[in-house]
Amino acid sequence: MDVEFTLNGQSFRCPTGCTVAAALFLLGRRTMRLSARDGTARSLFCGMGICYDCVMRIDGQSNVRACQTVVQPGMKVEVQQGEGELGDDA
């Protein structure tokens, strides 16, 4: 277990080279976002960056595809609620 990151504020580790999606699956925490209209849980679906179901708020930026993003040390990952928002650290 080589890389430390946070998920909704909680600290976790995962092997280097894992995507955010893979790391969440390792943790058994599959919900990546809640849909805008119905608030239903969404997760990894196509795995190749086309469907946008796996988008999360990562390091303060919304609409980032978890399946295309490799976990970096200190990465801040949050379940995205509905639509994205512009970061406060912009």
Binding site: P15, G17, C18, T19, A21, A22, F25, L26, R30, T31, M32, S35, T40, A41, R42, S43, L44, F45, C46, G47, M48, D53, C67
Partner: peptide, 24 residues
Amino acid sequence: WTLPGVMTPGSAQILAKTMGVSPG
């Protein structure tokens, strides 16, 4: 089909083959 845990076969293959992660 939108439930977490439903995915394409390719998606599962990427998890397993490139990262050694089990999809479930």
